[in-house]
Amino acid sequence: MLTRLPDTHRLGFVAYGRWTREAIESTPWREPEDALRFLDVGQDVTCSVTTTASGSLSTALKPLDIIRVPGLQDLLGHALDDPDSDGTSLAGLDISLGGTTPSGGGGPVADRYRVKPFAQWKQAAPVGSPPLPPVPAVVLPEEAWQGLRMAFSFAGADSDLTLFLTGHDGRVAGDEDFVFYHHPSAADGAARLLGKQPEGPHTVERATVHLSALPEHVRRVAIAINMDVDTGLTCVSLTHAALLMDCATGAAWTFQPPADPNIRAMVVAELYRHTVDNRPAWKLRAIGQGWAEGVDALARAYGVDVE
């Protein structure tokens, strides 16, 4: 991320990493806190934004040490920063886009490189701007009914994958429809946790769901993650967290749970029965609903009797 630093008005790198189009487009960008999600949806990300002694995010943008990263110094050296140059510079781009330069001749020229607070930017947004569209549900291929594989990959703190087999009302018919580490199988093995193991720098917990073998009373399958209750940590302690689902056809879907500092358990995605062209179908959609109290509150929300 190349920007003009407020203190010097010079170009500088404040973040670098790798981001996929899928990760960017699948992430909601609605609130100030969402702006920091780019740290979570990227890979090998380094950022100059730090926390203060009180734990709050610093509002100061400082340049990264580009000497330590091969290639960044060369990129910065070739970035056009002179408005009088023959090429298109960032200064000229600011002018062509309007920036904050006044159209009249009176009064002082506003600093077009000033960092604009999110609240001010949002207030100045056009009235009636449409909200970001929700992530659409997808119809699963019939091959996925015979074996939908899941892999929850993460690093940092420990976390667990859990499944809830629910009815139309979103609640389990009994505690036996709650699949977690103490009860890793339900519906005669149609929903099953396969265990957790290290794979390179990450930990991966796998599961399978045979949708065609689920009993008729199961209308939905909620796929959730929860932090280890003994640590008291929240999802912000997870790094590189991703839920990958695929089937025998090679079709795959990836969900990246946000590193929310206030959440200890979260429903990441949901499978649900549907009708498409008058034929039964299963659909998959993203959820992203969290519980600050952790897995106990999550379980109670789905009708599990937690003592």
Rank of each mutant, 00 (worst) to 15 (best):
A173N: 06
T50E: 05
V172N: 01
A110T: 12
T20L: 07
A151C: 07
G303I: 08
G55Q: 10
G167L: 04
P261S: 15
A157I: 10
V135A: 11
H182S: 14
S58V: 11
Q256F: 00
Q289W: 04
L76H: 06
L238W: 01
W291F: 13
F38S: 12
D34W: 03
F154L: 12
G98T: 04
L163R: 03
G290V: 07
A79Q: 06
G189P: 01
D305T: 15
A23G: 06
A297T: 14
W19D: 03
S185N: 05
R279D: 00
A187W: 02
T88S: 07
R4A: 10
A222E: 13
F154K: 09
G12Y: 02
D277R: 14
R192Y: 01
T275V: 15
T51H: 04
V209D: 02
V127S: 02
P126N: 06
L64C: 06
V304A: 05
A137H: 07
V127H: 01
D86Q: 11
L75P: 00
N226T: 14
L238D: 01
E293S: 15
K196L: 12
H202K: 14
V109D: 00
A292H: 11
D74G: 03
E199Y: 08
I67K: 14
A281Q: 08
G195V: 09
H9R: 12
T162I: 14
K196Y: 03
E216K: 15
A15Q: 10
P126F: 07
I287V: 15
P70N: 11
A224Y: 10
R279A: 11
P258M: 12
